[in-house]
């Protein structure tokens, strides 16, 4: 219990740090773009109209009450941060010309799509990665292990957008007749179909994006479990069990349980990767999720939405890391408070 409380207390400065970093992000004004353009940087000039950017940014500052209404000048730095912190803690990011409820609805709708994608991907990664890893770990240096480990190493290196593009080309109709829909979440007119047909439609739309998102974590989990099961399989207690005549299945279970506790820590770290993956996957497959929303917001310089997604993603990751640590400790009481 003391451990949980200490960890929760430690979260306070971390959350403050997250709001501070997003604040710094906010302070990087797009006015710099105008200066860059004046310096003759062709890309800066290409990136957008400096004046319009500046105006949008100032409107944004006014909206967050970061400008002194009397003088029109920005408030002092500390006060700006204080006001920003208040907004961030209430999670109130509605754009100047948007009603807060509409913003919240937009945000929640996108969040549900992203959660669905990521939970499915994470589930598949665990269901495939753990058995595959433990199977390989029990037979290290066999031809099967050598071939599959090499393949896993190569797959670990492939970035999501490349995998997404390849899947889209192979199955989504880029090169051959389409086997699966290439984007979106539902077919046109699907809302009038029967429930079964609708579910099938949704599933076929989710298959490619979920496969893309799941590939990375699956490979990481499989490689990790393989290593730890192989280490456990070499240890004394497994050798003893084998000499006592236990069957291979029981041996694998014992070795696996030993390797699973550190896996929790790994899973916590994977959450951050999933968020980044969502941005790519949702924009490649044009899905209406948070990642796609964030990307659209970045392209349209809609700062409030970018900040909202960044803040939410960081806090979700923080909670993921915390849960992973707590779970690790529950599974393995030897873990000390770091």
């Amino acid at each position: 219990m003391r451990y949980v409380l200490t960890r929760l207390l430690w979260m306070v400065p971390t959350v403050l740090g997250i709001t501070l970093i997003t604040f710094v992000l906010l302070e990087l004004t797009p006015g710099d773009r105008a200066r860059l353009r004046a310096a003759g940087d062709p890309e800066a000039a290409q990136a957008g109209d400096g004046e319009a950017q500046r105006a949008r940014y100032e409107r944004f500052l006014r909206h967050f009450d970061l400008v002194d209404p009397a003088t029109g000048a920005p408030r002092p730095l500390l006060e700006r941060y204080g006001r920003w912190l208040g907004r961030a803690l209430r999670f109130d990011f509605a754009a100047p010309d948007e009603d807060p409820a509409a913003f919240r609805d937009r945000f929640l709708a996108a969040l549900s799509v992203t959660l669905l994608l990521n939970l499915l991907a994470f589930g598949i990664a665990l269901l495939v990665g753990v058995p595959l890893g433990s199977w390989l770990g029990m037979r290290t240096a066999s031809p099967a292990d050598r071939a599959l480990s090499g393949a896993l190493l190569a797959l670990a290196a492939l970035p999501e957008f490349l995998v997404a593009t390849l899947l889209l080309l192979l199955l989504g109709g880029g090169l051959f007749p389409a086997l699966l829909p290439a984007g979106g979440l539902r077919s046109a007119g699907a809302s009038e179909w029967q429930a079964g047909a609708q579910a099938f439609d949704l599933l076929s739309h989710l298959l490619l994006p979920v496969a893309t998102l799941a590939l990375g974590p699956t490979v990481v989990i499989a490689r990790f479990v393989r290593e730890s099961v192989a280490r456990a399989a070499r240890s004394e207690f497994v050798r003893t069990l084998r000499d006592l005549g236990q069957d291979p299945g029981a041996l694998r279970r014992c070795a696996l349980r030993n390797g699973l506790a550190p896996l929790c820590t790994l899973l916590g770290g994977l959450v951050a990767g999933l968020v980044s993956g969502s941005v790519v996957v949702e924009s490649v497959f044009s899905l209406p999720g948070l990642g796609g929303l964030a990307f659209a917001a970045v392209s349209q310089r809609e700062y409030a939405m970018v900040l909202a997604v960044t803040l939410l993603a960081s806090i979700a990751t923080l909670v993921g890391l915390l849960l992973a640590d707590l779970l690790h400790r529950a599974l393995d009481p030897r873990v000390r408070l770091a």
Partner: peptide, 16 residues
């Protein structure tokens, strides 16, 4: 805690 790609995207948008 920060998702790398998102932050890089945000910086690309905010600072050019």
């Amino acid at each position: 805690c920060f998702p790398a790609l998102l932050l890089v995207l945000a910086v690309a948008a905010f600072a050019g």
